[in-house]
């Protein structure tokens, strides 16, 4: 069994804040981390390795320092790490990103047939949830998004049965491999790397693939291959915290305000 897991290096957006005076993004000291959703994808891949002896390849597209997120994946058990890094890949939107990732995984598939491609449900910086499906379409394999449980795997028949989490219900679906799955955070708890694992990861060679290897038409990747463009960026209006008195005569007003918020936030409707 060969599993490819996609990981992305993202800025830790929970540490990003807006300067209230200049209204600009404060990114000072904001570190880059593995997209949290991807850590669940890596964990799930390693569970396939533990259970079925799968070979796990981690793939990332990003700048050279994205190597660090691949090393993290290696530290908990990933066998091979590939970084797709090229100036030509820069500025890509989700479509151009999935073009590059899709082709890279196709190349891996030629070396050793890929049974499962695993991605996080979405990234914390983009929140689009589009790259997973994009990869599936590029590779022309079945896509299963929002998987929150792998029910069973039949290694002989090469089928997998999983559960998908949708808003008000769950689906149990069975498909033949190969398949692309994006996973929910609830699917597992990522393991903590052991020190021998980390030391091993420090020494592992991360393969760098540039467009010289992938040979993609420059017009289909990076900025030129991205159909969406950012026109402008601005700070959102922020709801300021409001403190009100809720005692004595103010009580009714406070309760009214509270109820108004329930309506505002679409919790209840009348």
């Amino acid at each position: 069994m060969h599993i490819v897991v996609c990981v992305k290096m993202v800025p830790d957006t929970t540490q990003v804040s807006i300067d209230p005076v200049t209204n600009t993004l404060i990114r000072d000291g904001v570190p880059f981390i593995t997209n949290p959703y991807d850590t669940n994808a890596v964990e799930e891949a390693i569970r396939f390795k533990d259970k079925y002896g799968a070979f796990v390849t981690a793939v990332s597209m990003g700048p050279p320092n994205a190597e660090s997120v691949l090393r993290k994946a290696v530290s908990i058990g990933t066998d091979r790490a590939i970084l797709l890094s090229d100036r030509a890949f820069g500025g890509a939107d989700t479509l151009a990103t999935s073009t590059v990732l899709g082709l890279a995984i196709k190349k891996l598939n030629e070396e050793q047939p890929v049974d499962i491609v695993l991605c996080g449900k979405q990234t914390i910086d983009g929140d689009t949830a589009q790259v997973g499906p994009g990869i599936a379409r590029r590779m022309n394999i079945t896509q299963l998004t929002l998987v929150d449980e792998v029910v069973s795997v039949n290694t002989e028949k090469k089928t997998i049965r999983i559960r998908r989490k949708l808003e008000n219900y769950h689906e149990i679906i069975e498909v033949k491999l190969p398949v692309m799955m994006t996973v929910e955070r609830e699917i597992n708890t990522p393991r903590y790397p052991t020190v021998p694992g980390r030391l091993h990861a420090d020494d592992v060679r991360v393969e760098i693939w540039s467009n010289a290897q992938l040979k993609l038409d420059p017009a289909t990747i990076g900025l030129p291959g991205s159909p969406t463009q950012v026109r402008r960026i601005f700070a959102p209006e922020r709801e300021k915290g409001e403190i009100m008195m809720g005692e004595g005569p103010d009580r009714t007003k406070a309760v009214e305000a509270c109820f108004a918020k329930l309506l505002d936030r679409d919790i209840v409707h009348v």
Partner: peptide, 20 residues
């Protein structure tokens, strides 16, 4: 969940932009 699943796939097949 359903819409995002479909939109990503459709946009890729149509090679067009999708804003989530």
């Amino acid at each position: 969940g359903l819409g995002r699943d479909l939109a990503g796939a459709v946009a890729t097949d149509l090679k067009t932009g999708l804003t989530a």
